[in-house]
Nucleic acid binder design. Structure first.
Lengths: 256, 256
DNA sequence: AATTAAATTTCGCCT
DNA sequence: AGGCGAAGTTTAATT
């Protein structure tokens, strides 16, 4: 872990200015804690008088200003900002301009408690677990997520990554194949479902195919209709919620 | 401006532990920069391997963990968390549990670049300018925001705070009174508009009354219909966008 | 407390 | 590049 190049407790505005300048020049991560006032002009406009806040400028030019409470920053800018800083009579002025969104942020620091520029090494991949397996579990637990009267019979685990299927019957006893996608389903997903039905559809009886996903791509929708398949909108979030609401006993009964 | 009680460069895990403990006990603002891994369990679940990040714990128990890029924190918890921290063989573990949302966050720091607890004084009021005056300006600039064919004649500035009116005529030449609300319009807004029309409606000619607001409260809606008034949905955001798109020349012509 | 809508939403995916 | 929709959305307002 690398030592920060510059980090100072209770720096003067001049010292802070140097740190800010260098951090901006080298696209590093910057933290400044101090007394400042803030003006924002863009989609809306805002003004915030003097107070002690935490300024965070990230490597990609994202800006966050945090007050002592709350999840949300009081002011911010998305990534891609260009910065200008200068020392004035009123204090250390830092301007962040977002060319893309034509917005600007102006901070004026009158006193600084702490300032540092950091070179953070962070390469790990963020993994959010709201998998298709989770969606499968939720549907097995609560089949009406697919449709009223749906009854799962067999759950399949495909070797190919990225989808999971469920066999079942609808309320009229017709066979149903459910294919789940965690994200927007595209043509490939439709074709996968179709192929699957083709493969097993040896009988003369019609087999319904339902693609379950948070969203259906437009072109996929056309293909879906052409192939006489169906779509059911279902988000991973809803599935996770379903799983959380269920008791462990119910889960075990279905998942074992 | 108060000096931070505890701020250390390259503190050991033991030193960091002390800072964290004290900060949590006294509900202060805490910043820890260091190498950590993160687990989240709640509405969804997530995992993030080791990497250098910025941890921010706020006075109200809000938690933010920021990677070197992007506006959004990689993991977080809304305000109201309860914290537990302890030193283990793997590192300094900080757990944030949100009882309200039944979510939890587990951070394990293996090395720390910087840690500080802060007592931030920040009492200024945040003022967002997307005022009714802005909405009025936007409508004067682009009357079709109210409806196709609307033509403003007079703009009124009422002394009572919280609303602005515009007089005009619709495409059939009928008189129109527009009342603007920046937020959801309630019964009072409807009654104000109605009273206004009553006051000026000396002629036998019908005067239309249009309430312009981002939203109409349900009860207000019923009253509106009973009084034969109308509603037009319009958000401050849309108005600001309209104003931003206009040239200063156009603005001057209308606003002077 | 639950529901609904707005947000300087951001972010990702698709056209 | 622009538009649409989801998000661990959050937050505020209303029922």
């Amino acid at each position: 872990m690398e030592k920060p190049l510059n980090a100072t407790m209770k720096p003067s505005l001049e010292e802070t200015f140097k740190i800010v300048q260098e951090s901006i020049a080298k696209n590093k991560t910057l933290i400044v804690v101090g007394n400042c006032e803030i003006e924002y002009k863009g989609r809306a406009e805002s003004k915030l008088g003097l107070g002690e806040r935490i300024l965070l400028i990230k490597n990609d030019g994202a800006v966050l200003i945090h007050r002592p409470t709350g999840y949300e920053p009081v002011n911010w800018q998305p990534s891609g900002c260009i910065f200008h800083s200068r020392l004035t009579e009123t204090g250390l002025v830092i301007r962040a301009t977002n060319v893309k969104t034509k917005e600007s942020l102006k901070l004026t620091f009158t006193g600084v408690m702490f300032a540092t520029q950091l070179e953070l090494k962070d390469t790990s991949e963020f993994i959010l677990h709201a998998s298709e397996e989770d969606m499968q579990k939720a549907i097995l637990l609560k089949p009406e997520l697919v449709e009223e009267g749906f009854h799962p019979i067999v759950k399949e685990k495909k070797t190919a990554p990225g989808f999971v299927d469920i066999f079942g019957r609808d309320k009229y006893g017709r066979f149903v194949v459910v294919e789940i996608k965690r994200k927007t389903a595209n043509k490939d997903a439709v074709l996968q479902l179709w192929k699957y039905i083709q493969t097993i559809g040896e009988t003369e009886q019609h087999i319904r195919g339902i693609l379950v996903a948070p969203k259906l791509a437009k072109n996929a929708g056309r293909l879906l209709r052409e192939l006489n398949l169906e779509f059911k909108q279902l988000s991973p979030k809803k599935c996770i919620e379903t799983l959380r609401k269920s008791t462990s006993g119910e889960l075990l009964r279905y998942m074992k």
